[in-house]
């Protein structure tokens, strides 16, 4: 009897030890997971803090080195060689090309999404989805090579039809077309998943009321999926604003602006950040961070704007949920 009890006590002590150790590992790993989560969450804040603190430097330095903040934000000339940094027209150019590109892609994306989800069946639908996915997977430098070799030529020939000469096709229009192509896959993917998420009842109800399938698609289903479509539009615009390498290959980097003529060369925030890469110090280098800060502000404001528009849209069609 006593023997069994001793055995039990011994093993109990052993298990208690193991339990304690295991609890220790549990706590350790739980903390590791938590740290990883916090690191991931902190990154975006760190990015904002560090890039901004570097970006404000050109406006704070000693008097002769300092860049005038007001001219930086509203200026219409960018001559890094002469120390003139007016980013105002660049902001406008960026808005023009990105928003126009996005607006060009949006209807195409919605129409394609309707075809993929509501008209095409089976293999054809998969095939069309594959096209969109492939377009989404193509890296932006490859789009850049295509744009520099094909889109610019197209634009140049088009301009020649009107008797306008271009800088080898490098122009706002070329950038707009490129950005339309590059934002299309994002918008289509979001529109497809939005349409798929629309409840079946809406479809059936509309059909039961005598609407044709096509009418149902465009009058009921697409409006019901507008939230996803708006999200896709925002994501697409975000990509358009931030797209750097491909755009800088065909923007032409205008020295003054804004460029209202679609056949004229342009300059975007990102193409400005990528010019004069060989500089590694001095104001020419530092100013890039300031442009980066402006880019972040533009993207965030655009997000807020689309978000507000989305809310109003949702309120207007409140009955449809």
């Amino acid at each position: 009897m006593g023997n069994t009890n001793e055995n039990y006590m011994a093993s109990e002590a052993k298990f208690a030890k193991i339990r304690k150790r295991r609890r220790g590992t549990d706590v350790l790993f739980r903390n590791l997971f938590r740290i990883a989560g916090v690191i991931a969450a902190m990154m975006v804040i760190l990015i904002i803090i560090f890039v901004t603190s570097r970006g404000v430097r050109p406006f704070l330095g000693s008097a002769e080195e300092r860049v005038d903040l007001k001219y930086f934000l509203t200026g219409t000339r960018w001559r890094a060689d002469q120390g003139i940094y007016g980013l105002g027209f660049v902001i406008i150019n960026t808005l023009i090309v990105s928003v126009t590109g996005g607006l060009l892609a949006l209807p195409l994306a919605i129409l394609s999404a309707v075809l993929i989800t509501r008209i095409a069946k089976g293999k054809l639908s998969i095939f069309l989805t594959t096209i969109v996915e492939t377009l989404a997977a193509i890296p932006s430098v490859v789009y850049g090579v295509f744009a520099a070799g094909k889109i610019t030529i197209l634009v140049r020939d088009l301009a020649n039809l009107f008797g306008i000469s271009t800088y080898g096709g490098n122009s706002s229009l070329a950038v707009i077309l490129l950005l339309a192509i590059m934002t299309y896959p994002t918008m289509t993917t979001l529109a497809v998943s939005g349409i798929r998420a629309v409840p079946k009842e809406l479809d059936s109800a509309s059909l039961a009321l005598g609407a044709t399938p096509t009418q149902t698609s465009f009058k009921v289903i697409v409006p019901a999926a507008r939230s996803s479509i708006a999200t896709g539009f925002t994501l697409g615009l975000g990509r358009a604003f931030g797209e750097a390498t491909a755009v800088s290959m065909i923007a032409g980097n205008a020295l003054a602006g804004p460029s209202w003529n679609p056949f004229d060369i342009t300059r975007t925030l990102t193409s400005t950040m990528l010019t004069g890469l060989h500089e590694t110090s001095g104001i020419d280098y530092e100013i890039r961070f300031s442009v980066g800060v402006v880019l972040m502000i533009v993207i965030v404001s655009m997000n807020l704007l689309v978000h507000a528009a989305k809310r109003r849209l949702e309120k207007k069609g409140g009955a449809v949920s």
Partner: peptide, 17 residues
Amino acid sequence: SSIELLAGVPSIIFSMM
């Protein structure tokens, strides 16, 4: 939402980071 935001940061900004 921070991680979502990080996904929306343009890659050229990552360069600056």
